[in-house]
Write a protein that binds this DNA or RNA. Structure first.
Lengths: 358, 358
DNA sequence: CTGAAAGCGCTTACAG
DNA sequence: CTGAAAGCGCTTACAG
């Protein structure tokens, strides 16, 4: 190799023919300017250790100088893999989705990756094929699975089969650690139960989400078990299964609040249903929290908009999204570490509870 | 050209070596199987008219047979343009964003395009550069600009400069027709005014959004003008500017509802602020709608969760998103036609208004 | 209406 | 530690 002057090689080119720093360069330009082969430039792009430090510095300086970023399509074509991560979800609430997206975006910021969204309908028969096409067509680097699709083992199996990396967000572990973000809904529900018990409530009712949802199961179990631990039983008639919707919350509250033998507190499996309880109580002239304490789950914006402001169990959704996306970018080992630093829900106390009157 | 047997050329190959219909083929495979050059296959992919009908049919049959879809990265590399459309937005409400995304997804379904999301902070100085990098890096096919960033002319100018197609969603026309989805917020606000007037309200108050928002300006103007047309003046002290947030709605309502000379109705520039009015009224024991009528704007989920259910002006957000995305895919002429079939808001009447008591 | 050549901007073997 | 060749799967001129 011909000797090469090592200092001051990179003559700063006439900067800014336009206001925008030029951006049109290719790997060939960088290679020429840095006086190396394009393969070497490729190595520094991909952070190969097999590059002499001085060479690397020189190449990096040129890349910075020209504001160079490699073309994702050329890389995608050669790698047979894109720099896109997908978020697959099935119709949870808007706030949930948006926060999850923000979290994912936090994780991929300045990484060169972008987020592609894929809502779907897990009840429609072809939905798994739809995800498969999405993944294969776009050669996705990986996908985040948000509840409730995250609970669908058939989906996960399909992804494993086509060798697509994924991360699952769910209330309990459903997969190997490096693929799971566990939300521990159970603990949050237990916190709600403890709080109600500490206030002095004994006659408590529960509106659960649909039993087909893992989160509903966990929230219910956490709540019931925590109460049991404190010596409070939940009679069968004080537990109503609903659909996580406002309307189902209304219907459940109507059942629970009919007659004289009302519970002094209601825990709803999410805020939507808690809002339904509010509606029924307000309409019936039952004042919250004087005559009825209410707790929700999710800490959606709704919770603080209601009056009196609803105490609710907050899930750190944005963090969940950030971690799930990070796991997709990280090496398996690092992904497991991320999983370990897992998220915990906690109760946000507002104005919807007080000790029972009687 | 050598004569070619025209019938039954395409021998159905041993289908499904695996359960999944093979998908790994390239343009070369299709060309070979259809006995044409890859360039001809490329022509049918791109719907060039310069292909003999029989040739086209044959090629299409093979493509279908093998479940072939062209590689978006190879196309992206050759075209220097991707099959991704971007949605750029600055922090409106979650429901708004999610519905907009659904609409955009409606438009690109089965088109081979995908949606990439790009929230940003329009108050941060570098945000336009951030969008530029996003667009150039991903070679986006186009971007949808959602309020309020859609109102930023500097953003639009930058996109025009780098020759990126875009569509803007805004309450009034800000650009050439083929780039605009006009939401006519003014008309929706006028409908709210007419409704309150028809119920007999004369002493009406208004909580506006921030004057820097075009939508706030339009909603205010539409409301004030419609009232004026019916001979109702809005005195200065009955108009309060707020920030489109719940908290600012609370503060505004506190000012408006203090003292004895209360208005009989309040129109809030969005549902968040209307929820603030609810909070203040409920806390002060002012009953809705008996003593105070309230109307919001957006028809967010919140509107129906409040009690009594809030009447609100609905914007067909999903339609807006669908049209904005369609415009990006369509030819300019077709895009203008889409723009013409523009969207209109309308009032959803619920339980938050009635004739004034006095 | 159809095709052979060159190229888009990267990476993967393979050498050295 | 570095490089020359071939290739990823498409499209753009250019011919005919």
């Amino acid at each position: 190799m011909p000797p090469r002057k090592k200092t001051e090689r990179i003559a700063p080119p006439a900067k800014s023919a336009s206001a925008v720093p030029g951006k049109a360069q290719t790997i060939n330009d960088i290679a020429r300017l840095a006086e190396v082969s394009k393969k070497t430039v490729s190595r520094v792009i991909n952070q190969s250790p097999l590059v002499h430090k001085e060479t690397r510095d020189r190449v990096e300086a040129v890349m910075r100088e020209f504001n160079y970023t490699p073309d994702p399509f050329a890389r995608g074509l050669a790698f047979r893999r894109s720099f896109l991560i997908g978020m697959v979800y099935d119709n949870p609430t808007a706030q949930y989705i948006v926060n999850m997206q923000y979290g994912a975006l936090d994780a991929i910021r300045d990484s060169g990756f972008e987020l592609v969204v894929h809502p779907c309908d897990s009840r429609s028969p072809g939905y798994i094929d739809g995800v498969r096409r999405f993944v294969q067509q776009q050669k996705l680097h990986g996908v985040m699975l948000v509840p409730r699709v995250s609970e669908d083992q058939a989906l996960a199996d399909m992804l494993a089969e086509i060798d697509c990396r994924y991360s699952r967000i769910a209330s309990v572990s459903l997969d190997q650690a490096s693929r799971m973000v566990i939300t521990h809904d159970r603990d949050g529900a237990a916190e709600a139960a403890d709080y109600l018990q500490s206030l002095g409530h004994r006659d408590i009712a529960l509106i659960t989400g649909p039993s087909s949802y893992r989160s509903a199961h966990e929230r219910t179990a956490g709540f019931v078990e925590a109460l049991a631990k404190r010596g409070i039983e939940l009679p069968r008639e004080r537990v109503v299964e609903a659909g996580y919707t406002f309307e189902s919350g209304v219907a459940s509250a109507e059942r629970l609040l009919a007659g004289n033998q009302r519970p002094t507190a209601i825990f709803a499996g999410n805020d939507e249903m808690a809002a339904g309880v509010y509606k029924v109580a307000l309409r019936a002239g039952i004042s919250i929290p004087q005559e009825l304490s209410v707790i929700g789950f999710d800490d959606s914006p709704l919770a603080s908009r209601l009056w009196p402001a609803l105490s609710s169990v907050r899930l750190p959704i944005r963090d969940m999204g950030r971690i799930a996306a990070s796991m997709l970018l990280a090496e398996p080992a690092a992904a497991s570490a991320l999983a370990a630093a897992s998220v915990r829900p906690h109760l946000i106390v507002r104005d919807s509870c007080q000790p029972p009157a009687r």
